[in-house]
Design a protein around this nucleic acid. Structure first.
Length: 224
DNA sequence: GAGGAGATCGTCT
DNA sequence: GACGATCTCCTCT
């Protein structure tokens, strides 16, 4: 049994019915230092709407990327065609393709003209699980935690579960009511936040810029 | 459960 | 031409 499955029983359910109707978080929230935005994004809901179908996941793991001062950030070398969203207005989705397989979802931070972003690394599935299973091409079997973690625990996984692609979502305004991809606040607050080094990078690998909801079983990886 | 290797392609040098 | 903000499968313990 993993650490995650041990702690799962201690978790209070985070399900909320408010999620689907709450207003998106305004752009001003993102127009700040990515570290602050990252910490405060924990516990918020990522919502994908397609007509009457809604997929919702609670953000449980993020990483901050600081812009041109951060060697690990895509924006480190200045604006390029790929990373221009990071230099644009705050509250936009920055979606990039990695390792020939996966998309990763970020939100642009800092006022327009300054780079900075937050990578969404893991979600706790809240609603629309059948749609997530379908998008991931997985079969729901017993509904246990180990199976649910395969849906959205990891940047590539959550992007697939929410059908996020660069073509469809890059530069999308997640603060707009009309957007089919939003971040909303349903009032739920994590009890405890933990900070660790970022995962999977080689440059500036010792910076404590990964933020997770402590003991949440949907956080990716093993280190806490 | 842990660790390693392979898959595959856009982006930048 | 090299590499990367990853995932999955396979092998070994």
């Amino acid at each position: 049994m993993t650490h995650a499955t041990k702690t799962a029983k201690l978790q209070k359910p985070t399900f909320s019915r408010m999620g689907a109707k709450a207003e998106p978080i305004p752009w001003k929230f993102y127009a700040r230092d990515p570290r602050q935005v990252a910490a405060e994004l924990l516990g918020k809901l990522l919502v994908r709407r397609e007509g009457k179908q809604v997929r919702t996941g609670r953000i449980v793991e993020v990483e901050a990327y600081l812009g041109q001062d951060d060697p690990a950030a895509h924006s480190h070398r200045g604006p390029t065609k790929r990373n221009e969203v990071l230099f644009g207005p705050p509250g936009r989705a920055y979606v990039y393709f990695i390792y020939g397989f996966h998309f990763c979802l970020n939100f642009s931070c800092e006022p327009e003209g300054q780079a900075g972003g937050v990578l969404i690394r893991a979600l706790e599935p809240v609603a629309g699980l059948d749609l997530m299973y379908a998008a991931r091409e997985l079969e729901p079997k017993h509904g246990r935690l180990t199976e649910l973690r395969l849906l959205t625990s990891g940047p590539g996984r959550l992007a697939e579960a929410f059908s996020i692609t660069r073509e469809r979502d890059n530069d999308k305004d997640v603060t707009s009511r009309r957007s089919d991809l939003q971040v909303v606040d349903d009032g739920w607050k994590p009890e405890k936040i933990a900070q660790t080094v970022r995962i999977g990078i080689t440059k500036a690998a010792d910076e404590m810029l990964r933020y997770v909801i402590a003991d949440n079983p949907f956080v990716s990886g093993k280190k806490m």
